[in-house]
């Protein structure tokens, strides 16, 4: 009798565990997969070491800043359209998945076509160097910022 009730208890626990697993995946599939919002990834994190590229490159937290080294920021105008290029290196020994987006500002520091630029996913292998390039949406852009965040 004791073994029977124990078996029932174990069965209950097992079914409960599976049901919780199933429902958590079915009801909230987007929680794990969708990357954090711009507001979360926007500003400069406190306590980070400053660099000459801080004006142009924003990391969502100091941890990401340590993982990625920025060593070249270039910009030019093609006719009146601004183009920017940022070279980054993965300084860790593991591949990292990041997302980045360029935001553009006009001469009065207003964002050009605000909140329309997409986050672009990028994988960086250990010690790999990649160039992030962006082109302004129109001729009114005079400066830019690139936001880099971990793709969780």
């Amino acid at each position: 009798m004791k073994t029977k009730s124990r078996l029932v208890c174990e069965l209950c626990a097992c079914i409960l565990f599976i049901s919780v697993l199933l429902t958590s995946n079915a009801v909230y599939p987007q929680r794990k997969n969708i990357h954090k919002t711009e507001a979360q990834a926007g500003g400069k994190a406190s306590g980070e070491a400053t660099s000459e590229y801080d004006t142009y490159v924003l990391f969502d937290n100091p941890k990401v800043k340590k993982m990625i080294q920025v060593y070249n920021v270039k910009m030019r105008f093609i006719d009146d359209i601004m183009q920017a290029s940022v070279t980054v290196v993965n300084t860790t020994k593991k591949p990292i998945n990041v997302v980045y987006k360029f935001t553009w500002f006009d001469k009065d520091d207003f964002e050009v076509r605000a909140n329309t630029a997409p986050w672009i996913p990028l994988t960086l292998q250990p010690n790999e160097q990649k160039t992030l390039q962006g082109v302004a949406p129109n001729g009114s852009a005079k400066s830019f910022k690139v936001k880099i965040s971990l793709n969780k």
Binding site: I15, I18, S19, V20, L22, T23, A26, V27, Y28, P29, Q30, N33, I34, H35, K36, T37, E38, V99, K101, N115, T116, A117, P118, W119, P121, N151
Partner: peptide
């Protein structure tokens, strides 16, 4: 389990947890 599964199938119904999300965010559903 059946009750919970029933809840799961109505995830897009009025009782679902709806929130706005960033349309420019990376989506890998």
């Amino acid at each position: 389990v059946l009750v919970l599964a029933g809840c799961a199938t109505t995830s897009t119904g009025p009782a679902a947890n709806v929130r706005y999300s960033d349309p420019t965010a990376v989506e890998t559903t």
